[in-house]
Write a protein that binds this DNA or RNA. Structure first.
Lengths: 333, 333
DNA sequence: CTGAAAGCGCTTACAG
DNA sequence: CTGAAAGCGCTTACAG
């Protein structure tokens, strides 16, 4: 508990000035290799670790970044967080997590707290790409990167590529020989819903049937019911807007004796393990690579903090199809 | 981006020394109310916010705490985190989230990074109360609190009260008039499983049937199958070890034409919204109040950091029964 | 090659 | 009631 060892301690133990000790440890300055080694050895023996606050006071860098999110559920933010942390810990950067719900006042408090702590940058994240956090992050004295949430026009924003992800999913169904594919998805006011539907229609034609509803299992059930009662042929491929809907669809099919994947192939979206892998059969689904997105966001905010040039605007990161069993044996399988 | 305003700026703008400015802002020292007000007003106008690194260097307090966890999935850690953050933001304390998987090396790196940043304390958390994190947190120069993970004998540890929670659940079934209650739960090597089973047996007698399996929906299905094929009477109450098992049980019952809650009442554990509320019917389940647990952990680590006396040992926080529909109308409903 | 000194932005005895 | 000065633990021009 008592005083940690300071650079003063290693300097005197090594018989040098603190200036030399500092330089030896930081690899700066010029000195005999012998001196440098000795200082390093002594520092290691004493378990010396420089006080980041003292360093920060000088360098104006705290080696911390803040992650602000309104995704209290953590479904999207956690993977993003993991990616950020993974990318930054190597540089000795730690990350503050601030869950602000949808409360502007709480958001402001957290931003102020982070600013007080001289964070090197802030990453704003959320649960959908077409909504802003309830905080104003412009004109902050630190760089801001938006990840999986909407930012101002000239900001640095990273999102997953919904169009490309949906394209992969539908293409997969097509390559499996599916002819009558429908799209069961969430509320139309989500940009993701519109983008995914566009990709779907680009592949199946403008006549493609898009059923918008909620992001829930229940809606998946209801959609199957609607498809069956509509009188037309039951589709042989269903591309779902998320894994919960897909699970509802799969369950509903099973309950009606429709075999997945024999009679109908189902694709989900999100690769939310807890849903995708326990569905029977496990879901083939689209992974948004949120961890990678987080990693990029971390690296980007750090680059900005270090004054490196960063291209502004929206950067879309590719999604990836994860093949499980809900589509049957595929061309790649 | 350019220089934030420093205390020097407000001092000169207010026409006082920086010493006076500091005291005015901190409410310390004695001075005319007029002077204090003037300084405060000027500080507000200039948007002055003290540099936490400079303060920290003096006070040896960083107003940060670290949360270490191996629960990458966030199911338990997120609510704990939310509670910690909620309790501490009022004191201006921000929290570092460090997900260390089960990697000792990664854990050490994160601990060192936090220590460098002079965290005021560390909260260790995890996904089960009878496992330790793969890091040695003893003999750290900062206080440590264990929340929902096992700590050393003389540590400060907070856990939810599994026995009491299970007791509430089974008592509820009993009060609904259920006679033949079984317990379907997870692997026996979990302390939680044993504690909950004890509470169950205390209420239904030593003959109570405990089926141990996995923490999965699939096991819930399998358990129902086993109960039916065993030849005995189908139970009229099933207390499940977690919500996933409960969902499996409920689904399996429905598939077999057994009506929940008419024929059998089902109780879950965890109150994991995403499972409990989408089960048909929604699950009555036990909430471990992890947010409260987090809040307590935050307050406790802060108290320790401030040198206040804190009782050591294991503190159990009560669980709470959340009544939904899987047990039918109840005495309290 | 190495050290004495200044300074990062604050707070707090110590004087007056 | 208020200010000049020292100091928290470092780093980095500036001298030698």
């Amino acid at each position: 508990m008592a005083g940690r060892t300071r650079i003063y301690d290693v300097a005197s133990a090594a018989g040098v000035s603190i200036a030399t000790a500092s330089r030896a440890l930081n690899g700066s300055g010029r000195m005999t290799a012998e001196t440098r080694e000795r200082v390093k050895r002594v520092a290691a023996e004493l378990g010396f670790r420089p006080n980041a606050m003292a360093r920060g006071l000088l360098s104006n860098r705290s080696f911390t970044v803040g992650l602000l999110t309104n995704d209290s559920y953590g479904r999207f933010t956690l993977p993003v967080m993991a990616g950020i942390s993974e990318a930054l810990i190597d540089c000795g950067v730690s990350v503050f997590l601030c869950a602000i719900e949808d409360d502007p006042a709480l958001g402001a408090v957290h931003v102020d707290a982070m600013l007080d702590k001289q964070v090197d940058g802030i990453i704003a994240s959320g649960k959908r790409i077409d909504r802003r956090l309830p905080v104003d992050l412009s004109n902050l004295p630190v760089p801001v990167v938006y990840a999986f949430t909407e930012g101002p026009a000239d900001s640095v924003t990273l999102v997953s590529d919904d169009f490309q992800g949906a394209h992969e999913a539908v293409e997969w169904l097509l390559r499996l020989g599916r002819k009558r594919i429908v799209h069961v998805t969430g509320p139309e006011n989500f940009a993701s819903v519109r983008l995914r539907a566009q990709a779907y229609r680009k592949l199946v034609g403008e006549g493609g049937e898009v059923l918008c509803g909620e992001w829930s299992e229940l809606w998946g059930h209801a959609a199957v019911e609607r498809l069956l009662s509509s009188g037309g042929d039951m589709p042989d491929g269903i591309f779902c807007g998320n894994d919960q809907i897909a699970r509802g669809v799969v369950d509903a099919c099973r309950e009606r004796g429709i075999d997945v994947p024999r009679d109908v192939s189902v694709v989900g979206f999100d690769n939310w393990e807890i849903v995708a892998s326990v569905t029977r059969p496990p879901l083939t689904t689209v992974d948004m690579n949120l961890r990678t997105l987080g990693r990029e966001a971390g690296l980007t905010v750090l680059a900005l903090a270090e004054g490196k040039p960063v291209e502004r605007g929206i950067r879309k990161l590719p999604c990836e199809l994860i093949v499980r069993e809900s589509c049957g044996a595929g061309p790649r399988a």
